[in-house]
Design a protein around this nucleic acid. Structure first.
Lengths: 205, 205, 205, 205
DNA sequence: CATGAATGAGGATTCATTCAT
DNA sequence: TATGAATGAATCCTCATTCAT
């Protein structure tokens, strides 16, 4: 009945939602979940307190929605880069390269995800596990397993190695100085990983 | 007037302080810094709220004291194991082995340290950096540098490699299932690291 | 410009207003005034929040309008039944009978009125007093006074007895079990009242 | 270990608790449960917000504790008066007399109870039913039943009559003017009730 | 006329901290 | 030294109300 310009409505809603998620990522990343302040979030986003609650039923629901949003972006960003080529070794390099690039390009979301990774609370941990499941699968099935099958990587449990790669990635990319600049070079980290995975008798390139 | 047997005084004080630190480690580890509750801590320790403030001037001071305490234990525990032998390769193996053993034997303190590592707050981060400085030095000066000098490890920046080793250790040892059991085997992690560090033309063992 | 069939306009408005009042009665009756939620009311009525404010300027105004509406219905319902006959004794019986029937037939409105009777707030109490004034007058002037004058009821202050009758009615008809069924039988309550009012030397029926 | 004057401790605690209950009764009685403000309560009692929560875990718990406290006082006050004599007729007179006196002497508690009687919320209603159970029993077993057995009151279901007496009492005693003065005279109400209960052929006094 | 996004005052509750005993 | 009653700032969340479409 309202004569609202039809679809613009939804776009506007999504835009507001996005601003809130952006502001929330910033706040959660810098303060942590418990110290984050809903009021700061809404004001950073350019709205008032109540608006947050028009979009998310609670602080925790906001956190979970943000985990889903940021997690999906992270996974897609890396998967897009990794799946463009076939060779496992290059895929692993791309995994680290894209991973570090994500941190540079989406610093706030990335810092939020690191924060969330170590935030206490069962529901948060479950949401993180769920959000990162596809990335584990990507590394295990699309990089490590083919690499082992093609004789490029030494024999090992792909799940375990995938977990190790994820640990290495998440650990290194969260090593940033005060200004946010990464301590590690993704190429060096990939190089480190490749040294660790290659066949002992494989010729060095 | 005090009929306390003279020096036992200090022992008693230290004992109380230790109980409080133990309880605090448990609370901080499971709830995180901001959600931790001073009252829970004092009650877990068997005292009342006020007692905490007789030993530590504030919640943050308690946190910082605990970082110092737990960090020092962690460093000494690992240093003791590592420095008992000379060979860099074995020292690296011992680094991971002792590191994982520390998590098993001092689970609460270890889980606290992981929590602290990712707790927001400048002062906390400074305290952590300060507490772990010796461990970085240990790895860099006593393991990586000799290893490179002796031609056992490939050429690389020892500081960077040490940082990578720390990242690998802290990342893997914080991978525990719900029951607290470690996901990774320290030998496998050490093996992984050694593969990554050895000279490309070194003979496999 | 409006292509609405002329007078149907008003009917539509009245229909909407009625739906809103019905929904409001339900909400106020079950939650009480302060806990009632305007949004619930509008949704129960099949409209959105804003619509309530197109019909009533505020929550309190809605409450007051509802008191007027429900009070008038209550009074008319009982007055209609009472005034159909002349004899004071039978009028008193009809008072209770119709009163209880009103609760059965207009449960929501009746439960709302009971709620309103004990809702704090000066304006609400004034509106209730105003709405029930006619019922007090009905009982005093049309039942008790004639009954006393005709020697059927013992001598007493008609205003006080009317108040007592109202108290008895409102008290007993609000005695309902969980399912909403009345605890008291109107005939028994009327009987009780008649016993109390009759002349000491009057012959029992 | 604290050298607190031993039992004075408990007295002090009880005193504070009592002040809080008094202030709460006042606030709940005048505003109703939902509109009552914990902050007002604490300040009226001479304490700050937090103190309320040192004594009662929540607003609802405070309400329930107050129902228990005020209900018990109400019941004991009336029971004490009623049970001092034996004759059912005089007991009924005392029931109303003491009931009205309670309202005069403990106005705040009494007004609170009337408020609670009509407050929405399952838990509150359950607590009220539980608190008033003994008063129902008192009226049914100690007044109505003996009165019927001794042929003083007409045959009727004692439970139902007891309920009617309670309804009459609660309804009339809550009829107060703006200044808090009772509209009804307890003797007149008792008289009304006795007229309604006596044997039709009993001689009037 | 109907809608529902935005607002922000209001209120329950938590909890670090103080301090008298 | 240990205690725990009292404090009040901080913060999540609710919801009546406004108003642009």
């Amino acid at each position: 009945m309202a004569r609202i310009p039809k679809k613009d409505r939804d776009e506007l809603l999504q835009e507001t939602r996005l601003k809130l998620l952006d502001a929330a990522a910033l706040e959660f990343a810098s303060k942590g979940y418990s110290s984050a302040n809903i009021n700061h979030i809404s004001e950073t986003a350019g709205y008032s307190k109540g608006t947050v609650y028009n979009y998310f039923p609670s602080k925790q629901a906001l956190m979970l929605a943000l985990i889903e949003d940021a997690g999906a972006r992270h996974v897609h960003y890396i998967a897009d880069a990794v799946l463009q080529i076939k060779a496992p070794v290059e895929r692993l390099e791309r995994f680290f390269a894209a991973g570090f690039r994500f941190v540079e390009e989406h610093t706030t979301r990335a810092r939020f995800l690191i924060t969330a990774l170590y935030s206490p609370g069962e529901e948060i941990q479950l949401a993180m596990a769920h959000a990162y499941q596809p990335m584990f699968q990507l590394v295990a099935r699309e990089i490590i397993t083919p690499g082992i099958e093609q004789g490029l990587f030494r024999q090992a449990n792909p799940q375990e190695i995938a977990n190790l790669m994820m640990t290495l990635y998440l650990g290194t990319c969260s090593n940033v100085d005060r200004s946010g600049k990464a301590y590690f070079d993704p190429l060096r980290v990939a190089d480190f990983a490749l040294h660790a995975l290659r066949q002992p008798d494989a010729k060095p390139d």
